[in-house]
């Protein structure tokens, strides 16, 4: 990869020339493992710091309308309850799409 330090070459132009040895399926596997890790290590039965369930629903259905602040930043990566709800919402969406 050849990258100039400045000039008019921006991040996007650089990125277009980047190859990704890991395909999307491998990324999917990684996120599944991360999900398992979160479910095992981050129980949050009192739902401390959890975003509103409606925000999680929007994250699945209309992600462009959700903000990082509404999600309480990276809270979901540290919350088994939110992760579980996300999984349910995803299943629900798949189910609706298949009908």
């Amino acid at each position: 990869m050849t990258v100039a330090i400045a000039d008019s070459i921006g991040k996007d132009a650089v990125a277009e020339n980047q190859t990704f040895p890991l395909d999307e399926d491998n990324d999917t596997l990684l996120f599944e493992k991360l999900q398992e890790h979160v479910l095992a290590h981050y129980p949050n039965p009192e739902r401390k710091g959890c975003p509103d369930p409606a925000v999680l629903k929007s994250l699945i259905e209309t992600p462009g309308e959700v903000t990082l602040a509404a999600l309480n930043d990276l809270h979901i990566f540290k919350c088994a309850e939110c992760t579980r709800l996300l999984m349910e919402l995803r299943q629900q969406k798949k189910h609706e799409a298949s009908e």
Binding site: F31, Q35, I60
Partner: peptide, 10 residues
Amino acid sequence: RFALLLRYSQ
């Protein structure tokens, strides 16, 4: 951060 969360949500 937001991109990672979106990817996490599949």
